[in-house]
Write a protein that binds this DNA or RNA. Sequence first.
DNA 1: GCGATATATGATATGAGATAACATGACAAG
DNA 2: CTTGTCATGTTATCTCATATCATATATCGC
Lengths: 172, 172
Amino acid sequence: MTSPVSSKSDPATEALGFAAHDHDHCVETAMAAAEARCNAEGLQFTPVRRKALEILLQEHRALGAYEVLDRLRDAGFGSQPPVAYRALDFLVANGFAHKIERLNAFIACAHPGTSHSPVFMICRLCDSVAEASAGPTRGALGQAARDAGFQIERTVVEAEGICPACSEKAQA
Amino acid sequence: MTSPVSSKSDPATEALGFAAHDHDHCVETAMAAAEARCNAEGLQFTPVRRKALEILLQEHRALGAYEVLDRLRDAGFGSQPPVAYRALDFLVANGFAHKIERLNAFIACAHPGTSHSPVFMICRLCDSVAEASAGPTRGALGQAARDAGFQIERTVVEAEGICPACSEKAQA
DNA sequence: GCGATATATGATATGAGATAACATGACAAG
DNA sequence: CTTGTCATGTTATCTCATATCATATATCGC
Ligand SMILES: [Zn+2]
Ligand SMILES: [Zn+2]
Ligand SMILES: [Zn+2]
Ligand SMILES: [Zn+2]
């Protein structure tokens, strides 16, 4: 096994929501679901877009646009920034992926299909990212908005800290 | 009067938390408070840092690091990016200012002195930003973190939408 | 005070993230 | 076949951010 040492690790054994899982299977099912939804809604799930989503799903972590671009180039697509940004824009606009503002990076949605306001937990030690789901108008934000007369259209909720795995490691 | 036309407007008449206020006074008191706290805590409130905070307070909106840098240069300080980033890092690290991740921009804290997890409301029409305060472990985020065993160290909570003022304009 | 150590500033260079603008190709509607 | 729409590719440029090295200024133990 290579480099069990520090932060980055093998996606197949790494956290999805900080929990181990059958990675190949989850990629396949997510791709199939995306395929189906694009068909149903008349969205053009073109090769670049498909590949971009596959890249995000494979990694199961937040990738910068240029990392995605590198992999798209390797797969034979264009090599200029707009190629990646356009594919990512499509994925984000249609809920297949999210942008993590804190990291300027993108990640495949962990709860696709459902309309949701994502909530992210970002481990500062291993860079893993878990996605939870939350109603948009609940909690402190919704209250503050109502008090102020502010109409929320979109929310960014991201927590930075230590994931369970790194927490255990630190104790040992 | 110049350009009452579109989005950007005079800080003195513009929203602080979407509400009008005595701007000169609020800048002065905030500067004095910062001064006092730096003295009390042994922080070096140097000329660049002081000026950077003054700039953020004067504008009362989110400024990009390079906008701050421009104004610092005008005030006779260094003109290279690290000058601004270092001053801003100091202000953020000590709670005098916050970074708005969604905008890659910085804003003076509206509730200085108190330890708090800020919550921002960003108007996509006029770019005004209001800061509300909220306990870090409440709401959906705190619940998701507890469920996952994730230790939150810092939170980013930002809502994008329409502020009360722009909402009224739109109705008319 | 004085030297050692830490902290802050200045300047250079470079890296990383994002978009404007324009050209080309695929395809469907009229 | 023409026209409009959408997706892709490419070029150039812009904004945001940091690594690094050199110099100055505090701070602290003595
Ligand atoms: Zn999601
Ligand atoms: Zn971790
Ligand atoms: Zn604040
Ligand atoms: Zn507004």
